[in-house]
């Protein structure tokens, strides 16, 4: 059975049908892509999956558990983590604290333990430092651990966002335009990074991307959205040749 299953997910804003009947089946360790022209509703799909918006219709299930009506923090707890198109780091916090926040759900020792500085709190802080430190090393950010996140260069901020999503300990990772604004060298590194993330942590990845080089190279299957509807779904080669997809991107052929 697939890990993440979305069925008939729809959302309208006023009269605008932003997403209609979105469906997806993402298997374990799958690496899928979600593409479409600007304004097709890709980010809205992410927002619907992660609970930022509530779907008008349809269901979302992760590992057999219903996510549809949960609040975003609960959905994160179920194992769905994401990055944002317009980077949303905790700018004033240090790089490592950004990751520590994302470990929130895995921290059983709360405020009383912290105020009394109980052994549990100390052990938790040590474990957090160790785990987040290790994550930073993996992402090549260890030397910047104590800098404020907003002072990082752009590429590092993108990577930190991915690291932060992974720190939540997800089963599925949603990446919203991870390659946006990157140069070719960075894009190449990003491809390796995403594959390594999937292999090391055993995650399924769904990514929105405009860079066709990245998408076609990385993704096993691709879903194409246009005007809020899924117009094609399949392996990259097949999607590339689909006349509906070509029409959506290039316009209808002249009659």
């Amino acid at each position: 059975m697939s890990l993440l299953i979305a069925q008939g997910v729809s959302k309208s804003f006023g009269g605008l049908k932003a997403v209609q009947g979105f469906a997806l089946e993402l298997p374990e360790r799958g690496l899928y892509g979600l593409i479409g022209p600007n304004g097709a509703g890709k980010t809205t799909v992410f927002n619907l999956l992660t609970g930022v918006y509530r779907p008008d219709e349809g269901t979302v299930k992760l590992a057999g558990r219903e996510l549809t009506r949960l609040r975003p923090n609960r959905i994160a707890g179920e194992g769905l983590a994401r990055t944002f198109q317009n980077i949303r780091l905790f700018g004033e916090l240090s790089v490592i604290d950004n990751l520590k926040v994302a470990c929130h759900l895995r921290c059983p020792h709360g405020m009383p333990a912290a105020v009394l500085r109980l052994a549990g709190h100390r052990a938790q802080e040590r474990a957090l430092a160790e785990r987040c430190g290790r994550l930073l090393e993996m992402f090549g950010l260890a030397s910047r651990a104590h800098e404020q996140a907003r002072n990082l260069p752009y590429g590092d901020q993108r990577r930190l966002e991915i690291a932060r999503a992974i720190a939540t300990g997800p089963k599925v990772l949603l990446l919203d335009e991870p390659a946006a604004g990157m140069n070719p060298q960075e894009k190449k590194e990003l491809r390796t990074l995403i594959r390594s993330v999937r292999d090391t942590f055993g995650l399924a990845v769904l990514l929105i991307e405009h860079d066709m080089g990245v998408v076609m190279d990385l993704c096993e299957r691709i879903t194409v959205l246009d005007y809020g509807k899924v117009i094609a779904h399949g392996p990259p080669e097949q999607v590339q040749k689909d006349p509906k997809v070509i029409e959506a991107y290039l316009g209808a052929p002249a009659a």
């Binding site: 930022v52 923090n73 994160a76 983590a81 944002f84 916090l93 932060r164 939540t168």
Partner: peptide, 13 residues
């Protein structure tokens, strides 16, 4: 305080 939406997405209630 930094970003409520991102905080929620990271599991913060």
């Amino acid at each position: 305080r930094e970003d409520e939406i991102a905080a929620e997405a990271m599991g913060v209630n």
